[in-house]
Structures are given as structure tokens and as C-alpha cells.
């Protein structure tokens, strides 16, 4: 298995607060990695650093042997890492289909003049993008809403739409920030099945989630954070039994000395 993403010593400081303290991990092709930890442990901050929303003070993010540390978000997406948000960031004024098409923008190269006059290249590119958007939407079961505004969708469907939009850029790493928030258990199970399909096709996935049943059933590997530090890493089973993780979640007094 080849390593797709390598995160080494990433540190992020807000004022005097160290939100991320030298976090390192690796992600292999087609694997699903779960990012867990209590509130404020730095999971979302890490995702923001990986997606370029925040620039880290130290450390590096390497995607396919290319250093993408501190690049602007759109460049990181162009390089092959796409994400969704915990609080959705959909385009309310665009149709469901157009929301997905925006995700394809960085893979399109027709010029302004070509688009206005409908050059054969731009028409072909547009047609292919629309076909891809339609198939992505049917994959998440939203194809019948293609011409509707996102406001017509349920909360769970909006989450799926954001995932479809992220997938439109054909990413090699897909990052999901609490995709289960607001979903019923049934919807969460469907989402887990969908994420497995995505990873089976070779896309690596990083997922932040509090829903432990969801995480444990889905991921291959877990990185656990607490107070901005990686406290444990391993397969779901070993994490579930890890003393530090249990302590971090339940607030139990630690018997081990801090390292």
C-alpha cells in the first residue's frame, strides 16, 4: 500500500494557545482514517490545517510527495484534497446540480471566450462535468433534486450534497468533518456504506466523528487527539481499549504519568 498523505509535526498556535502540538500521521491509499478526541482536542483545527484554511506554525503536509503545507484552500483542493464542513457551506443560490459542478471547477480549463462562444472544447468539458455531477448525485441518491435549490433538501441530504461536491474534484483524499451530525442512525449507516464505496474506489478518507458506533464500524485506522496532541493511534479495537483515550473521553483520573 502506498502512502498518499504524510502529516509531520504539524503545530498550530492561536495567540498563546497551542491548538495542535506536533501532530504526525500517515494515510494510505484507499484507507479510512478516523480522527477522534473530545471537544476542543484539535480535530477540526487539524482538518483546517490540512485543507489550507489555517496555516500551521510548524510541520509539513505532504500529498503524493508534494509539499502542500500552507497552500491556499483552492490550491490544496486542486492538488487532490477536498473537504466538507461541520456547519454546511453550500451555495444556496445555486441548484443542487450546480453545487456539485462548482466542485469540478478546478478540473475545468475552458477559457472565458471559449465558454461564452461555446467552443467545442468547452461544450465537451461542460457535458462531461454535468454527466459526472449527475452520476455523483445518483450515487448519493439526490439525482431527482438536481434542478432544485439546496433548501429543498433535508439536513442529511445536504450533508450528502456537500460530500458529492467534494468528490466532484476527484480527490485522492476526502476529509469529512462530523458527517453524521444531525443524521438518524439509519442515515448514518447509509453514509458509512457510501464512504466504504468511495474508499474502495481508491480515495482515502479522513473522518472526524463523535458517533463511536459509526467510527468503529467504518474506519481502518484511528488517530486520537487530546489537547492538540496525538495520544494514541492504531486500529479501532486497540483505540477502544487504550487507557489514555478512555481517560480523555471519560475524564477519569489518569494512572499513568504524562509523557
Amino acid at each position: 500500500m502506498s502512502t498518499v498523505l504524510k502529516v509531520a509535526g504539524v503545530t498550530k498556535i492561536f495567540g498563546g494557545l497551542t491548538a495542535l502540538d506536533s501532530v504526525s500521521f500517515e494515510l494510505e491509499k484507499g484507507k479510512v482514517l478516523g480522527l477522534v478526541g473530545p471537544n476542543g482536542s484539535g480535530k477540526s483545527t487539524l482538518l483546517n490545517v490540512l485543507s489550507g484554511v489555517y496555516r500551521p506554525e510548524d510541520g509539513s503536509v505532504t500529498l503524493h510527495d508534494r509539499n502542500v503545507t500552507g497552500l491556499a484552500p483552492y490550491l490544496i483542493t486542486t492538488q487532490g484534497m477536498a473537504r466538507t464542513f461541520q456547519n454546511l457551506q453550500l451555495f444556496q443560490g445555486l441548484s443542487v446540480g450546480d453545487n456539485v459542478l462548482v466542485g469540478r471547477t478546478c478540473r475545468m480549463s475552458s477559457t472565458l471566450v471559449g465558454s461564452i462562444f461555446g467552443s467545442s472544447f468547452s461544450r465537451k468539458e461542460e457535458r462531461e462535468a454535468k454527466e459526472q455531477a449527475r452520476s455523483l448525485l445518483s450515487l448519493v441518491g439526490l439525482d431527482r433534486f438536481i434542478n432544485e435549490p439546496p433548501s429543498m433538501l433535508s439536513y442529511g441530504q445536504r450533508r450528502l450534497l456537500e460530500i458529492a461536491r467534494a468528490l466532484a474534484s476527484s480527490p485522492s483524499v476526502l476529509m469529512l468533518d462530523e458527517p453524521c451530525a444531525g443524521l438518524s442512525q439509519g442515515e448514518a449507516d447509509e453514509l458509512a456504506a457510501f464512504i466504504r464505496t468511495v474508499s474502495a474506489q481508491g480515495t482515502s478518507v479522513i473522518v472526524i466523528e463523535h458517533n463511536m458506533r459509526f467510527i468503529m464500524g467504518l474506519v481502518d485506522h484511528i488517530v486520537a487527539l487530546n489537547f492538540g496532541r496525538k495520544i494514541a493511534e492504531g486500529d479501532p479495537r486497540s483505540i477502544r481499549e487504550n487507557e489514555d483515550v478512555i481517560a480523555a473521553y471519560l475524564g477519569r483520573k489518569k494512572r499513568h504519568a504524562e509523557n
Binding site: 485543507s51 483552492y74 471547477t105 467534494a166
Partner: peptide, 9 residues
């Protein structure tokens, strides 16, 4: 921010 992470310059 949504546009940015969707790859829009």
C-alpha cells in the same frame, strides 16, 4: 469559504 475549498480561485 465553501467556494475556496471547492477549488475556486
Amino acid at each position: 469559504i465553501g467556494a475556496d475549498v471547492s477549488g475556486v480561485n
